[in-house]
């Protein structure tokens, strides 16, 4: 089977600053992949480029062999697609909004995710705490039935119990063939979830390795493997 995501020689700069340089990456179907790197390494920028928030002018990115931006957007569910509503809508209205706009949005799944994450459909967005808002973001993102999920720091501001709930939601609600690309600063929190890791350093992919290989062949845990790339800087 061909790869779900293929990136060839992607370079990206903005405001006279080179953020990604000659980046290559291939992701297969049905994996949970950790995107690791320090602050400012370019993880979020890479996700924005994959999702279509930023413009890939050279068509370096293809999902399911599709380089067309509008088609790519239909194949990606990105946490940044949530937010920016006018007013302070109730959560059920937000569900209706996405249900009307995305063919692959499943309202039943959304409501079940809300229930799992202890969110009430009648709550207003402005009444949510930072952690509860992150839960809403996760619910909206996972309620789409698509090929690629991009979760940019999904556990930011979330307590450990909820973190576990979100992790089990990801495993439970991810379609079997779908791939999840998840970035997080706290590597240890997501280590058990991952099938492979991608490390971004010096504006490109410094390493891409299966989690099993790291643990069994290299004899390291994922956190140590990741930190080894920054050993000189520690």
């Amino acid at each position: 089977m061909a790869n779900l995501l293929t990136i060839n020689h992607l370079s990206y700069s903005r405001n006279l600053q080179l953020i990604l340089k000659d980046l290559n990456l291939e992701l297969p179907y049905g994996q949970i992949v950790g995107l690791l790197g320090t602050n400012g390494a370019g993880k979020t920028t890479l996700m924005r480029l994959i999702a279509g928030n930023y413009i890939d002018r050279k068509n370096s990115i293809s999902i399911n062999t599709e380089t067309n931006s509008a088609v790519r957007k239909s194949l990606v569910s990105f946490t940044e697609q949530v937010g920016g509503w006018s007013g302070h809508p109730r959560i059920f209205k937000i569900g209706n909004f996405y249900d009307a706009l995305y063919e692959d949005f499943n309202l039943t799944t959304f409501n079940q995710l809300l229930s799992n994450l202890n969110l009430s459909p009648d709550q207003r967005v402005n009444q949510l705490s930072k952690g509860n808002f992150r839960k809403l973001v996760i619910a909206v993102t996972l309620a789409r039935q698509t090929d690629l999920y991009l979760l940019d720091e999904p556990f930011d501001g979330i307590d450990s119990m909820t973190r576990k709930k979100i992790i089990s939601s990801i495993i439970q609600w991810k379609p079997e063939n779908a791939t999840v690309l998840v970035s997080d600063h706290h590597v240890g929190d997501i280590a058990n979830l991952l099938d492979q890791v991608v490390i971004i350093k010096d504006q490109h992919v410094a390493a891409q390795e299966a989690a099993d290989t790291i643990r069994e062949t290299l004899g390291k845990d994922i956190e140590t493997y990741y930190e080894d790339f920054y050993r000189e800087e520690l």
Binding site: A51, G52, N53, K73, S74, V82, G83, G84, S86, L101
Partner: peptide, 18 residues
């Protein structure tokens, strides 16, 4: 104001539309 917000808001720019 509403029209201008759409051009740069991820909520709208990520919609699967040309």
């Amino acid at each position: 104001v509403k029209q201008e917000r759409v051009w740069t808001a991820p909520l709208y720019r990520l919609l699967p539309l040309s």
